[in-house]
Design a protein around this nucleic acid. Structure first.
Lengths: 232, 232
DNA sequence: CCTGAGCGGAGGCGGCATCTCCGCTTCGTG
DNA sequence: CACGAAGCGGAGATGCCGCCTCCGCTCAGG
């Protein structure tokens, strides 16, 4: 299918044929649109949705990306990489407790703000090995983060490195529910969890975000009902 | 459609016509099967699935329950009621802190063990007003639970009654992820959160469940991948 | 100006969930 | 026991939806 491998023609052909300028522009539009759509509506979103959002025809999308999986992969690769990179940076921070907390916050924020990423990381419908590899890289780094924090005595001893991804996912899920109404509510529960992670404490640290009001809860429920019928 | 309202026949007819014995038996089977299926696989499960599980034909299901919504409603009504009832019972407990914790545990356990209930309560695709009504009833009771626990000084002052349902949902979501591998993992994070809810503490309370091993996390991911492709 | 890369979007295809229909079975009553 | 009605099963009608293809037209750019 490659345009040049056919007849054993001239020279090396593996360089990307440079793509006409308008085509390249469309490619970028598609990428941007896909990011937006998958982030907000999750991986269930249609490539037709992406096309509409990008303002191009479906055909254009499929010409550029052979299928959904490829597009999703290309899109989230760097976001996953970032996850690993931030963990490594955190390792270099001076205060081990703060380092762990920051990382947890970063991980949660990423997943809370991005339904697609959350689905990708936790339910592996698409980039299984990609994600598995990232997780593999992450593991020792997070372990180190946890051990160090425990060594200073700030982190409770029964906390485990594997708790980190699960907590991030869990908090992000809370955010999912309240998403349309108060997207940052996860910060409140992260605060709570962090206080629970301390080896000991006197008093409490202030929760960064106010609780939802009963009306807001009600509204969340309504919004979710609408969304799931509108989306499907 | 009622069999008796047709011709202005004898006496009162609103009593349920008693249903032949085998039919009643099947009805029960269906109800039991539906409970099992919706609990384990969520509200997306098909009525065909329910029929298969019950060992009856689809037709039988549809003859007894006009549509999915009716069946789901009938099924979850008492589970929702139980949620309210337990809250009220908790109010009567002697130790306010323990009462709140017990209720939180009960609510989380219910949702963690029942995907259908979780979807029903949080995403309201089906019994919107039923759930809304239950929530309405629950609200003052939970408020009381929270206020009392705060009055004793055990519960941090910035905790709010609306945090209760969100926390339950959040913890249950963690359980959802680890479901097939370690269904009780939510208890671990409930422990963590509870320690975070205390106004102050010295040291930590033991977490009731060990963390997942890296292998178990891996396995969860794999299981989820399979499940979502097998189910759809 | 002219050529082919690129475009759009209708529509083919396959899959899936809901619900119906009708010939056969079973209950239970006279 | 016999027979009418209640009940049953499950193939399949129906409608919907997501993925992807195809072909006639457009327009970038040498």
């Amino acid at each position: 299918m490659t345009s040049c491998a056919e007849g054993g023609a001239v020279g090396d052909c593996r360089g990307e044929r440079p793509l006409r300028r308008d085509a390249e522009r469309n490619r970028q539009r598609i990428l941007r649109a896909a990011a937006e759509v998958f982030t907000q509506r999750g991986l269930d979103a249609t490539l037709d949705d992406v096309a509409r959002q990008a303002g191009v025809g479906v055909g254009t999308v499929y010409r550029r990306f052979p299928d959904k999986e490829t597009l999703v992969g290309e899109l989230f690769q760097d976001r996953i990489d970032a996850m690993v990179a931030v963990a490594e940076q955190a390792c270099a921070a001076p205060d081990p407790w703060q380092a762990l907390v920051s990382y947890l916050e970063y991980a949660t924020a990423s997943m809370a703000g991005d339904l697609g990423l959350r689905q990708l990381m936790m339910f592996a419908t698409y980039g299984r090995d990609r994600v598995a590899y990232a997780r593999e890289q992450m593991r020792p780094v997070v372990s180190k983060l946890v051990e160090r924090a425990q060594a200073t005595g700030a982190l409770r001893a029964d906390f485990s490195a594997t708790d980190v991804p699960l907590i991030a996912f869990m908090l992000a899920s809370a955010g999912e529910y309240a998403g349309p109404v108060q997207p940052d509510i996860w910060q409140r529960y992260l605060g709570l969890v962090i206080d629970g992670m301390r080896a000991s404490r006197d008093g409490v640290s202030e929760l960064p975000v106010p609780a939802l009001s009963p009306e807001e809860i009600e509204e969340s429920m309504r919004a979710h009902g609408q969304r799931s019928s509108a989306r499907r």
